[in-house]
């Protein structure tokens, strides 16, 4: 039994076939022998250069990438031992994703985009989901744009819609990949404030991959990756 919300032990991820392989013929390490524990309610910034393994780590934590060595536990559950249905349910209920490129569906309205996770939920009470979507949009300050299409929104607004979608099911963990990467400084700050508010008020665990100092400074813990290795875990290792 692990006490940490996220527990990573000896995690390695190899992209096969690269010629610059350090170990003859196996490929390139995206992540190598990574050990990390994250407690509930932490705001963790994962920093490092491009290609240091930040996105790969988030994909593994979110169960989108299952091709790795080592063990990853989320809320005491070993991801490697979960089947597709269990992993999908975890992505629906336990984890929210926020991407640098927002990844909203252009044919759906803002409100429908926010409701998207409810379509894959086992619960059929649409009223509850609609109430939650309104609350999520209200928290991100976009209730007035509920019926707009994403194409009519600014970049900052789109990212806030993506955050509203991520928190619809009130997941305990948010995985964010460069969430302010496409935003100007002012808009980025707004989004960062929103994250901090979620962390402080809701106790949401934030794991944000970023190369922005502003974000890493705001985090309660900074984890540094270099060429797939953990070089600094913010003093908690």
């Amino acid at each position: 039994m692990n006490k940490s919300l996220v527990h990573i032990a000896d995690l390695s991820k190899i992209y096969p076939g690269a010629i610059e392989s350090p170990e003859a013929g196996r490929g390139t390490y995206a992540i190598q022998d990574l050990n990390l524990q994250i407690e509930a309610g932490e705001f963790v910034a994962i920093v490092g250069r491009s290609g240091s393994g930040k996105t790969t780590l988030l994909n593994i934590l979110g169960g989108l990438d299952r091709d790795y060595e080592g063990q990853v536990f989320i809320a005491d559950q070993n991801l490697a031992k979960m089947d597709d249905v269990e992993l999908s349910k975890m992505r629906n209920q336990t984890i929210g994703f926020v991407f640098q490129a927002f990844h909203l569906l252009p044919q759906l309205t803002v409100f429908e985009n926010v409701l998207l996770p409810s379509r894959f939920s086992d619960y059929s009470d649409t009223e509850i989901f609609q109430q939650r979507a309104q609350i999520a949009l209200a928290r991100t300050g976009l209730l007035h744009r509920a019926s707009s299409l994403p194409t009519s929104l600014s970049a900052g607004e789109r990212q806030r819609v993506a955050i509203a979608r991520a928190i619809l099911n009130r997941p305990p963990i948010l995985l964010c990949d460069e969430p302010t990467g496409n935003l100007d400084a002012e808009t980025g700050q707004l989004v960062l404030d929103l994250f901090m508010e979620l962390c402080e008020n809701d106790g949401t665990t934030l794991i944000i991959a970023t190369h922005e100092q502003r974000v890493s400074k705001a985090a309660t813990r900074k984890v540094v990756l270099e060429a797939g290795r953990l070089v600094d875990d913010g003093g908690k290792a």
């Binding site: 979110g62 249905v85 629906n92 990844h103 894959f120």
Partner: peptide, 16 residues
């Protein structure tokens, strides 16, 4: 492909 990936990220199963 992107739409499918988004569905998967918010909880769609392979069967879905």
């Amino acid at each position: 492909r992107m739409e499918i990936a988004i569905y998967r990220s918010v909880g769609a199963t392979l069967n879905d």
